[in-house]
Amino acid sequence: MSEPVLCAEGLCKAYRSPGGLRTVLRDVDLEIQAGEFCVITGPSGSGKTTLLNLAALLDVPTRGRLVFEGETIGPDDTRRAREIRRDRIGMIFQQFHLLPQRSVLDNVLFRFRYLKDEDRDRAHAVLDELGLSAVKHQKARLLSGGEMQRVAIARALVHPPRLIVADEPTGNLDAATAADVMRAMAQLHGRGIAVLLVTHNLALLPYATRHLVCEDGRIREAVPA
């Protein structure tokens, strides 16, 4: 088997809270292969977002080890984590987090500090692919919810990444639009991009290649129904 995109061993995360330390993730092991479309479900407050943030190297675990494409990222490797986030990870959020005053194209290109022609070309290609050709130059705030989330997907895809983490990306969308967005995401694993997606919407499960359940800070493979 090839090297996993992301490998987590014994991940623990505790938050300081008024009543002392609160452990949110307990001893999570996880391995995600290239091309895998992994969906995580679980009750609210079970630690899914926390896990995604760790997987995206946006947060550091209290304990445990994270290996991204063979490279161990320790809690002090903030610079390295930043570089990997910039170059090899794409993030998608429930609230889209677009810059409302900027054009669609600007939003997609937002991650680049210096813009090269090939980045611009890729942005156009990704937008075309996601059916956003007509709105490239529109301001983001004028888009519909489904379009906004597809712009966010384009932004997460443009560099291009090795791993995409998506936290309830369809949470703010109606069923039909959600299905659109999921279809767009489902194409990704065909290109060897690993996807880690959290959702409450069990109707989206058919798109997944793997289903994990998060409960009380622990992760387990879902038993196929």
Binding site: A56, L58, R79, R82, E83, R85, R86, D87, M91, Q95, H97, L99, F110, R111, R113
Partner: peptide, 16 residues
Amino acid sequence: VNEVGLRMALGASRGD
């Protein structure tokens, strides 16, 4: 705050 968070998530440093 959101924008700054996003910038950092996309790789911006504190210096940026």
